[in-house]
Amino acid sequence: MLGRILRSASTTFTFGRTLNAGDLPAFGDLVTADAAGGPVYGLIYEIIVEDDPFVRQVVAASADMPQEKIEDMRQRRQVPVEITALAVAFRRHDRIWQGVPPRPPGALQRVTACDCATTRAVLDDFAFFRLILNHGQAPTDELLTASLLNAAGCQPPGQDRAYLLDAGRELVRLLAQEPARLDAILRRLAAYAETSHE
């Protein structure tokens, strides 16, 4: 489990966790949150480590604090790390649908990481591109790139390049009117694709 839902909306959900509960999920990772009717899948686009009064005092009081105290403050702090994901798909009737879920996950619902099989099932259909491109708050180009590179890493051996080629062509279709933006994304994908075969 990565954490529990703090708050949610139709298009995004935010969950919280402590810093020391294992590795932090990364930007662009696919996660799933339980919701009424079935799980909702989202791509992480924001990770926030908030301050709290103790941290403020410690940082203000002394610049060269002992390492033990820093670790103590990290592990015992009262403010969770907030991670926000963009909802891109949901499961209903044993089928994954790309789009905004009918209902967002409820408070304190569990959020877990997706394995490669689920990542492929959700991200092999490029309909989620539009959800990302149309979202006004997320760093869309970076999120697209990161999610595609993650998904490529989940493809069976030797098929990551083909996946990225198909994704690139779909991006051309969607971003043909914005060549500079398209080029920036494709160059990132190309860097991965060209090295993955070496």
Binding site: L164, R169, P179, L186
Partner: peptide
């Protein structure tokens, strides 16, 4: 090569 393969036939 990747860029070529993406663009040819698409853009």
């Amino acid at each position: 090569d990747f860029m070529r393969q993406v663009h040819l036939g698409a853009s």
